[in-house]
Amino acid sequence: MAKRESTFFNMVMALLVITFIASASLGFIYELTKEPIEAARAAKKNNAIRSVVPVFDNNPSEEEYRIEVSGGELVFYPAKKDGELVGTAVETFTNRGFSGEIILMVGLLPDGTIHGIEVLEHKETPGLGDKMESDKSDFSVQFEGQNPEDFRLRLRQDGGDIDGITATTISSRAYCEAVELAWKVYIDKDADVSYELPAKEEAIDRVLPGFANNPVMEEFQVVYEGKVYNLYPGRRGRNFTGTAVESWSESGYIGNIRLMVGFNQEGIITGVEVLEHNESANYGDLIENARSDFYKQFVGRDPSGEVLKIREDGGVIDGISGATVTARAYCEAVQTAYEVYTRGERN
């Protein structure tokens, strides 16, 4: 066949046809390989998680959460068996490797003990720094089963408990730093996430002063403005020490806020606990006793003489900035508890 002439039309046509066929076939191949590529990526991560935490039966990637730290963020993968937390895989990093970033997956048991470590990514020198990979040397084994609480994550020459890799001080040091970062953030965060709202008994225990009976057994109902409330009397011998009132407000920012409020015989507030709420994280949830001291403003107050409202509404309570509606509803629920306690009619 004769060679095509290099006319303008022929050149444009040839280029157009070829690029069209090329991009169409690439699009096709891309669609074909898209899922396997995703699967390969997920498998790599899951394998790393699996090898650093004890046996689990959930999908940790689905329950991942992230915490920002300076220079990046850590990703936490909680591993659970039968719904119980058995360990957390933490994707951590350091930029202080010999050739830049090192990314590790550190497995921590719920108490902070290191269970296993895998290297996800690094650019360290082959033959030297890459010995930190778990299949190339036993370096990572020294960390296993150690709790950084009483195990110093530093190289021996830096006054720690880790034997560095020969001729690879910088990589070893960076590795320890990344592990320590994971542990520190985990321990700090742990206090936060493992906090759960108290059950009814526990809340009563916290808001009522020195009682010896079982208030839940002596629960009674009170009707106030057409609604039924539960009250729990605390007694020591034959003396009443106080009463816990379960009350709620329907004007929270997101739904109901349910409180347990304790009063002594004089009607002075002895304690407040949040039983239930749906308020926003980091704003409204500051009403929880574990997250801020907001509740302490109510303890020791006498609602008959003091206005239990936030200052903007002419009261004596400092609101929570960014969560006015929530704070207002909380005050309302405390006030309701007082009314119930003093004016309610026994059912």
Partner: peptide, 30 residues
Amino acid sequence: NFVPSKVRIPCYIVVIASFVTIVDLVMAAF
């Protein structure tokens, strides 16, 4: 025979680049 000689190099490059991308994708997947 279909490619005019003045644009043959760009055409060949597209062909090669396509096969390179195929290798790239298939290797990433498997």
